[in-house]
Design a protein around this nucleic acid. Sequence first.
DNA 1: CACAATGTGTGCGTTACTCAACAAATGATC
DNA 2: GATCATTTGTTGAGTAACGCACACATTGTG
Lengths: 181, 181
Amino acid sequence: MTKVDRRVVKSQEAIKKAILELMAEKNFDDITIRDISDRANVNRGTVYLHYLDKYDLLDKIIEEHISNLSELCRSASEMSFQEGNYVWFEYFAEHHLFFSIMLNTKSAAHFRSRFLDLVVQEYKVEVDVTEGKNQGLNQEVILQFFGAAVVGAVEWWFRNGMPVPPRVMAEQTGILLDRNL
Amino acid sequence: MTKVDRRVVKSQEAIKKAILELMAEKNFDDITIRDISDRANVNRGTVYLHYLDKYDLLDKIIEEHISNLSELCRSASEMSFQEGNYVWFEYFAEHHLFFSIMLNTKSAAHFRSRFLDLVVQEYKVEVDVTEGKNQGLNQEVILQFFGAAVVGAVEWWFRNGMPVPPRVMAEQTGILLDRNL
DNA sequence: CACAATGTGTGCGTTACTCAACAAATGATC
DNA sequence: GATCATTTGTTGAGTAACGCACACATTGTG
């Protein structure tokens, strides 16, 4: 893990924050590179130094969060759904700017599908259709069913401005998952 | 007005903010350059690039605010004390981090005297001892008297966490000054 | 259509900042 | 008083970001 120049970190963070703020204010298509660089208080060329265009920028942001969530799963693999969910919802709350935008605007369908894929993938190891309560059921169906359920619950949470604390969300969804998977 | 590289603006603002925050947390003597650079998220060498040491840094911050206040006076010279005070207290509120520290900690006596000098100097043109209510009084006495009064009121304001809005402070002190000068 | 205005992506030379290393000064601990 | 740790101020080499300007697309208005 070679350490990165702090200038790079600062520039990229400013740029990422800028585009998210702008996406909260107007349509993605209407956002220009100049808008982003102005908001980030960074030279326009600096944006191109790190990203190909605004689509690449958004992609990189999404991939980073998916990667972080995936990493969280790895370190929480020993936990119950309830405990694991708590870690996730803490992360959601910490980056609520990103998730609120991604799960509110229609332009972010791309993220939704990446997110759903991740959830399904992470739950896969938990589902046992050879014995127990789900014996005889189709694994893929179960995964898609509860994957969509979790994603939908998270969407609702952000769409309504996180009306309950992350801890409660984690507990409630955790109970439902522990009961079914 | 040659435009400054945005990097120096950002670095200097981060450094100035950092030292003020640190002064709110601990004694000035206990603050190291490394503390400042860490807090500002800037390389230690960058601090030396702009300032000789932490004393020079604090000096430059003070001089900058004194200069800004002086400039505000110039653009508000046509106003009554009440209106002019409003401009000042707006500035105070905007930079409350700086003023709260400068007028709270004993280590900032230097600023207090610079501040008093400025107030006295700015009021000088307003005082007429040849006629009117102050005829026959000593100009210097009047200036020191009301200079100390204003500075003291501002000190009280910050010492108590700005308990009334700046507009009210401006109005009240403005009335008292208009009545006497 | 013309044409002005704005955005895009790229390249240029310059500058500010980076990290790492250093010797000297300072200060705490045994 | 010796030793170890930390801070200080400075240096050098490498790089990220700077401002600026260009050619080319895209857009919208008369």
